[in-house]
Nucleic acid binder design. Structure first.
Lengths: 361, 361
DNA sequence: CTGAAAGCGCTTACAG
DNA sequence: CTGAAAGCGCTTACAG
């Protein structure tokens, strides 16, 4: 257990027999350093394995190579995949991520503005922020910010100039609805997310717009207050409140995790109806493929990559005083139609033997 | 788009008509501030929504409320769950996580030592570090470090005094092996992880120790160089190299993701044998439950919680100069025996109708 | 209890 | 091309 202090720039300068300024210049690749001195200093740095303190560097406003990634919570693999995408791009730019998780809407806002106003990171990517933060006045400094899976239109609270990367939720949900319409579904349930984020808002709105466009259709949103496995609880509550009434034809769910909960509840409450009820998700998690869930393929990693690309484009934009280049990038989601029963049967080596019946075929 | 600078402590002092020192003292809850001045300063802080710059604070060596979490990569939900566990505990202590992903073994080592030596975080949790870092000399300052899913014994390179939280890999793998032994498996394959981490090392060692303890058993490790879906490729390569030979009775896999790849390959190469070949995983991911994979339940969130608890215990330990309290906490993993065919059948509403045959029953 | 001063480890004008 | 100095925003002995 040593007590030696880690090397500082001052020490390196002393060892190299030069000034702090010069060492700093070789560190930051400043052109005005004579080649031989540079080589010498670099040798000392390498020999002593000196690594600059990023935070001291950040305090002065210099580039730190750090990107802040702010995310509301970790669940359902979504955040992990997005962050992975961001990280892949950051690696290309020799950058590192500083990922932080917000514990509440307020917390999200505070951390975000801390990063934006502080000097410690080169830019920040805000993943799926709670919509409420857009209601709050914000002081956006020149630090690049990119919203990922969220978007804000011009408003009078300082939010105008933020780039974003989102998926086309509206087009995707319309595709789901058309698919279900063609399958003769008319009595629809939308199983909502339990937090207010951009994707959730657009998906729910689009669901109801579609229903409103078809006189012969009816649709209703259900949601549960329970945080965990809310698809399951929302469905149970629905059947409790609507005992004896017509069973819906389809459950359109905010995401796959919600859909699994719905399927679980249907199994429990109406196993006989299960075969004819359509359930759709969104994300296309690994389990969706195994269970055979019809779902929208969320390009999570690409979402992260695009957000990071967009951010680095801004970070590396040297043109001082250039008009802030705001970009709203929108990615497509594909509908993946699967048959729950057919897909599952595939996992049974005995399927030919038993020739499993496929209800929706 | 405002250009106003965010408030600094100096500004707050000016507005409150007091000195920076005093403002700093109320910020850090220092006792020697008169109640009325404290109240006044607090009012100013609240009114102007002042938030101290964590990095400036960190530079001085004061507590920042930040915990560094270092992780090799994001995959398989494992890291996300562990981080979630850490975050839950950090929240209780009003702390926040700074999660960083290392891009290589060297990178892991460098970032870790940066955090340990720097002043910017109160402590660091290192998740599943590459074993190679333990070969490198390290200067451990007094900053608390906890290894999560890894452990290092006393060595002469400065690593002695690091607390750890791990699972009991050896006991768990022995349980798997005993289960398979009772099922009459004698010809075993271990499908190894493709990176060198503590868990992987112990699991593989235990597999071979068990095999060596039974004269009538034989076992062999296979691994693939391919990073993604390595279970699949390792299995394909195995069958290529061993065409015509006896098909193994069981594949013991490093984790569930590996096991899914193995099942996929078995489906492809020997669908007829699939029903009699045992495949086991580790982690107990959601998909394991759906597919009916026999596996070990990895208490990921608890692993994170315990690591965080252990870290905060050290952080909050005021006893100056106390002997470093090193703790190795070991959690149990339960074997979850599932039947692939039975479990899948549960997802088919038609199962009674077709009375699906269960091979292993 | 309060304030002026030094310092944390860097960078960046400013002179030479 | 190089170095001495000021400063980033905080904290913490040190005097009072």
């Amino acid at each position: 257990m040593r007590k030696e202090k880690p090397l500082t720039l001052r020490e390196v300068a002393r060892i190299a027999g030069t000034s702090k300024s010069t060492v700093s210049r070789v560190l930051t690749n400043h052109p005005s350093v004579s080649p031989d001195i540079r080589a010498h200093v670099e040798a000392v740095i390498r020999k002593h394995q000196y690594r600059p303190n990023m935070f001291a560097r950040g305090l002065t406003g210099a580039r730190t190579g750090l990107i802040a990634v702010l995310s509301p919570w970790i669940e359902s693999g979504f955040y992990a995949s997005v962050i992975r995408g961001i990280d892949l791009v950051a690696t290309r730019f020799d950058g590192h991520l500083m990922t932080t998780f917000a514990h509440s809407d307020d917390d999200y806002f505070n951390i975000l503005t801390d990063y934006v106003n502080g000097h410690q990171v080169d830019g920040v990517i805000a993943i799926a922020p709670p919509m409420s933060i857009f209601e709050r006045k914000v002081l956006l400094e020149e630090k690049p910010v990119v919203l990922c899976s969220s978007r804000v239109e011009d408003n009078d609270r300082g939010w105008a100039a933020v780039s974003s990367v989102t998926v086309d939720n509206a087009a995707a949900i319309r595709e789901v609805m058309e698919y279900l319409y063609r399958k003769n579904c008319r009595n629809m349930i939308y199983v909502a997310a339990n937090n207010d984020v951009y994707d959730a808002r657009v998906r729910e709105e689009t669901f109801h717009e579609y229903v409103a466009s078809k006189p012969e259709m009816k649709g209703k949103t259900i949601r549960s207050k329970i945080y965990d496995n809310w698809g399951y609880y929302a469905t149970l509550e629905y059947f409790e409140d609507n005992a004896g009434k017509n069973v819906p034809d389809a459950f359109v769910c905010f995401n796959d995790a919600t859909a699994f909960g719905v399927i679980e509840a249907l199994h429990e409450k109406m196993p006989d109806e299960l075969a004819r009820i359509y359930v759709t998700g969104c994300d296309d998690e690994a389990a969706a493929n195994i269970v055979g869930l019809t779902t929208l393929c969320m390009p999570m990693e690409r979402l992260g990559k695009e957000a990071a690309n967009c951010l680095y484009e801004r970070i590396n934009d040297k043109t001082e005083g250039a008009v802030m280049h705001v970009r709203h990038r929108v990615l497509n989601m594909d509908l993946i139609v699967r048959d729950r029963y057919k897909t599952l049967a595939k996992y049974l080596p005995l399927n030919e033997l038993y020739n499993i019946h496929v209800p929706h075929a």
